[in-house]
Design a protein around this nucleic acid. Structure first.
Lengths: 109, 109
DNA sequence: AGTTATCATCGTAATATTGCGATATATAAA
DNA sequence: TTTATATATCGCAATATTACGATGATAACT
């Protein structure tokens, strides 16, 4: 198959999984880290920095944009990408909640 | 292609991405949530609970085991799966660090 | 208008993932 | 020892992902 049965899971489960999925690629982690470090950057910076083709970087940026982790604003002929702080904070809290739970309980093994 | 160029990224980036990748499927999120809620469970419980085939659940459990998020202990003819608290805590901290950074800075847009 | 710079999109090849039936393995019970 | 139960693994088909060259689209500069 290759297709997940999203209909049998809750909205919450699908949303969280989708967020993690987007974060689940080293290039996208590297892109986020570079954007954070430089407090925003353009696509070409990432091409130089990461050593991936421009088309590839653009595709990764698209996926990050699709879940609103980053946003781009046009600046002349280039586009400045930076973290969407509100969404970032939301994801952070979402993750925190998810990871906090089990530590309050005792596992069976 | 379909293959990531892991060699151009740092160990850290690859490890974090791999963790997120494993969490990036609703079935695996649901499995973890059920294990947490029940404080451990067996494969068949998950088959009944999620409505996926036994082979499919087993495969998802394998991926979760591969990054040590869960561990299984044999109990008679079944295997009890539960959260590996140490690894869970480690991931939690890893995530926290990753998400904390940018909020201290001001973005360009 | 023509040129250059920057980024997005299209098309494609290679590979990965998802899901499941069938089968193998292992333990417990009869 | 046979049978039932629980899980893992194999093999396959359908689909998704990754990467990149080629091509478009847009804006600035000459």
């Amino acid at each position: 198959m290759g297709i997940s049965k999203t209909e049998i899971f809750t909205e919450e489960q699908n949303r969280l999984a989708n967020l993690f999925k987007v974060l689940g690629h080293p290039a996208r982690i590297a892109i986020l880290q570079h954007i954070i470090k430089e407090e925003g950057c353009i696509c070409n910076d990432l091409v130089d920095e990461l050593g991936l083709a421009q088309a590839t970087i653009s595709q990764h940026l698209k996926e990050l944009k699709q879940v609103d982790i980053i946003q781009g604003t046009i600046e002349g002929k280039s586009i400045c990408y930076c973290i969407n702080q509100n969404v970032w904070k939301e994801i952070q809290e979402h993750c925190q909640l998810f990871f906090e739970e089990p530590l309050r309980k005792i596992s069976c093994c």
